Computed example of a mutant assay.
Amino acid sequence: MSRIGLFFASSTGNTRRIAKLIKKRYDDDTMAEALNVNKASAELVAGYTHLVFGTSTLGGGQLPGLSTDCMGGGWEEFLPQLKDVDFSGKTIALYGLGDQDKYPEEFVDAMGILYEFFTARGAKMVGAWPADDYDFIASKALVDGQFVGLVLDQENQKALSDARLDAWLKQISPDFGLPL
């Protein structure tokens, strides 16, 4: 089994594409193949001590799921399956996709929802990301002036995504026991 689990939920495919870009940067011993949470199980997730979770934010700040027309479901359906999993001793990094121009009042809110869920279950969260260079009004993903994970805006700042992704992966590497 790989050392790091990589899971995502996506409605348009952007979050999946980012997961695949993350996976490309690591070998199979280090990171598992990216897996949509609608194909995952609580037991599979619980088997990893290091995890990367990705999400988009839909509509009025919602998680991807059946109520937001996410085919096959997403985090909305999967989180209840994880409610009894103890994440103590697990290290989790989050990445979130959002549109700061179209949804400035709930920018990457879904990532904030995941953060609250996993911290409430004892996870060590890593990968906080500066909120500078984004233009938005409000976000549930802000804690102490920083985002709780990597934020990518594929609609308005796509040209910045590769550099942001590389910098973030370098940042979380020590927390995951990886060389820089």
Results as ranks from 00 to 15, higher is better:
K158C: 04
W168T: 04
R16A: 14
M111T: 15
R17N: 11
R17F: 08
G61Y: 02
K124Q: 15
V85M: 10
A159Y: 02
A93M: 09
G149M: 03
T12N: 06
A19W: 01
V37I: 11
R121I: 09
L35E: 07
Q154C: 12
L66Q: 10
I137E: 09
G96F: 05
A9E: 08
F107A: 03
S10Y: 05
S67Q: 11
I92Y: 13
R17H: 14
G61H: 03
G60L: 10
D144K: 10
A42Y: 00
L44F: 04
G145S: 07
E155G: 03
F78V: 05
Y103A: 02
R25K: 15
S56T: 11
K170Y: 08
K24T: 15
V108P: 01
G47F: 01
R121V: 14
L94P: 00
E33Q: 10
K124W: 11
Q100G: 06
P104L: 03
M71C: 02
A141E: 13
V45F: 00
M31F: 11
L165E: 05
L178I: 14
K23V: 13
L180E: 15
D84R: 05
L142C: 02
T49G: 06
G47T: 00
L51I: 05
L35P: 09
S67M: 06
P174G: 01
G98Y: 00
Y26I: 08
D153Q: 04
Q171P: 06
S88E: 11
A93E: 08
L165Q: 01
S67A: 06
R3C: 02
D99L: 07
K20P: 03
G59H: 08
E33Y: 06
L178T: 12
A9C: 14
M125H: 14
G73N: 04
L150T: 01
T68A: 07
G127N: 09
W129Y: 12
T57E: 12
S67L: 04
S2R: 01
A167Y: 12
T91L: 10
G59C: 07
L51V: 08
A159Q: 08
S11C: 09
S67T: 12
D86V: 00
I92C: 13
L142H: 10
A40W: 01
S139L: 15
G177W: 06
F53H: 12
M71N: 07
S67F: 01
T57Y: 14
L94R: 04
D28Y: 10
K24S: 15
D135T: 04
R121M: 08
G112I: 01
A34D: 12
Q146A: 07
G47E: 08
N36E: 09
W75H: 12
L178M: 10
L63N: 03
T30S: 14
A138V: 10
R17S: 14
Q62K: 14
T57S: 15
P104A: 02
D144V: 06
E77I: 05
S161N: 13
E155C: 11
L169N: 13
F118C: 15
K20E: 12
E155D: 05
Y48C: 05
M1F: 07
G65C: 13
G89V: 01
T91H: 04
T57L: 05
E155R: 11
T15M: 12
A32I: 06
G5K: 00
G73M: 03
A128D: 08
G89L: 13
P174D: 08
G5F: 00
D28T: 09
Q146G: 01
G61M: 06
A123M: 08
S10H: 07
L97W: 15
T30K: 14
I137L: 04
S67V: 04
L63K: 02
